[in-house]
Simulated scan of single mutants.
Amino acid sequence: MCMESGNITGVSEFLLLGFSEETEVQLLIFGLFLSMYLITVLGNLLIILAFTSDSHLHSPMYFFLANLSFTDICVTSTTIPKMLVDIQTGRKVITFAGCFTQMYFFQLFAGLDIFLLTVMAYDRFVAICHPLHYTVIMNPQLCGILVLIVLDSLLHELLVLQLSFCMPLEIPHFFCELNQVIHLACSDTFFNNLAIYLTSGLLGFIPLIGILYSYSRIVTTILKIPSSGGKYKAFSTCGSHLLVVSLFYGTGFGVYFSSAASQNSRTTAIASVMYTVVTPMLNPFIYGLRNRDIKLALRKFLSKKIVSA
């Protein structure tokens, strides 16, 4: 049975299957994801607070880091609260409009995440390889241009609106993931899949190549530093970003380019937890807890609040 193509009212709702139907497992998943969500929001808010409260952190590097923290909060807030409500109420239904909105904002913030990770690699490249030109190249105007949101997700949503869908409308995922929704279509999905691969190449592989090129130049420059202390300091500032890039790209590409064989299973949903939940949760620990400037800014802010209180 198929719904009318292009008719939003023809598809009233989808069913999000999530991870498991067992009550005990669902309670465990609820507690685990609620904990991870709260840690993600709190940790990233602390980084944003440190950036906004200390003028010494108003540099391009921390500007991008604060924007990355904000984007990570948005990515998790797009998917996790809905899943927690579904488990709590036992009703795993999402309306077509809700699914459409969730897909749009997830694609939007995920694209911004990729964009910011690429810009942060370029920022480290300029700071290490061209330190004398850093304030010229990484000026506030350029920073503002570089963090503009790439609205490629709009293309995917417009293409999805042209599809007709078949029963049963069950998505083996904990949120409306683009690939899974397209898989439910009765009509031809050639242009949808083509758009996914093209945008994944433009917003995935090309930024990744830029990141790898930046770090190849960074490593070459660092190896020329005579002192071992200088080399360690330079490597430590780049190691955090490389770890986040590896987690995000490794799991993201793994899901989008190898999920064809497991479209009807929950394997993709479990794998996507890494880049939708785990990576945003780890970012504050990877960047913040290892960064002396951020910890110092938070101590100053808390000390002022305690004194004023």
Rank of each mutant, 00 (worst) to 15 (best):
L146C: 05
S246L: 15
I209T: 14
P131Y: 13
F125Q: 04
S227M: 08
H241G: 02
P81Q: 11
I94Y: 01
D152K: 00
F248A: 09
S262E: 10
L112P: 02
S308L: 07
F106E: 01
G229K: 04
S258G: 13
V93Y: 12
G90Y: 07
E170Y: 10
Q88H: 14
L68W: 03
L42A: 11
T23W: 14
L298Y: 06
V126L: 13
F285E: 08
M138L: 15
V147G: 05
I48L: 10
A297H: 05
F175S: 10
F174L: 08
V181F: 06
Y197K: 00
R217E: 15
V147A: 04
I145M: 08
F165A: 04
R91V: 13
F115H: 13
S12R: 08
Y215L: 03
I149D: 00
G210H: 03
T118L: 13
L16G: 02
L65I: 11
F191N: 09
E157G: 05
T40V: 03
Q141T: 09
N67M: 03
H183K: 04
H156K: 02
L142S: 00
I87F: 06
M3T: 09
L158V: 15
L223T: 12
T251F: 11
V25Q: 12
I8Q: 08
F100Q: 05
N139F: 02
L302G: 01
C176L: 08
I286Y: 04
T135F: 00
G144K: 14
S216H: 14
G204S: 08
F301W: 13
Y275V: 02
S12N: 12
V75I: 15
V41W: 05
A234L: 13
M1C: 03
L16I: 15
K300H: 14
H183L: 01
F109T: 08
I196E: 12
F70I: 10
L155A: 12
A195C: 11
S59P: 00
T40F: 01
I182M: 10
A271F: 15
Q180L: 13
L298C: 04
L15H: 14
V307K: 12
N179G: 15
V244H: 03
D54T: 06
G31I: 00
F70Q: 13
F70R: 12
L223S: 14
C186Y: 09
Y122D: 00
K82S: 10
V160M: 14
I209C: 14
S214G: 08
L159K: 12
F175C: 07
L42Y: 14
H58D: 08
Q180R: 12
M83I: 14
H56V: 04
M3N: 09
F51D: 02
Y197A: 13
F125C: 04
G230N: 10
D123H: 06
I196A: 09
H183G: 06
S216W: 15
L154K: 02
S240T: 14
C186D: 13
M103H: 04
R217D: 15
L242C: 11
S214C: 15
F100S: 03
S240H: 11
M61C: 00
A195P: 01
D72H: 10
G254L: 00
Q141A: 09
N179H: 08
A269T: 06
F51G: 00
H183F: 11
A185Q: 06
C176I: 07
S246E: 11
Q180N: 13
K295M: 15
T101R: 00
H56P: 01
P226M: 02
V150G: 08
L242Q: 10
L159D: 07
E170S: 06
N179R: 09
Y62C: 00
I114G: 07
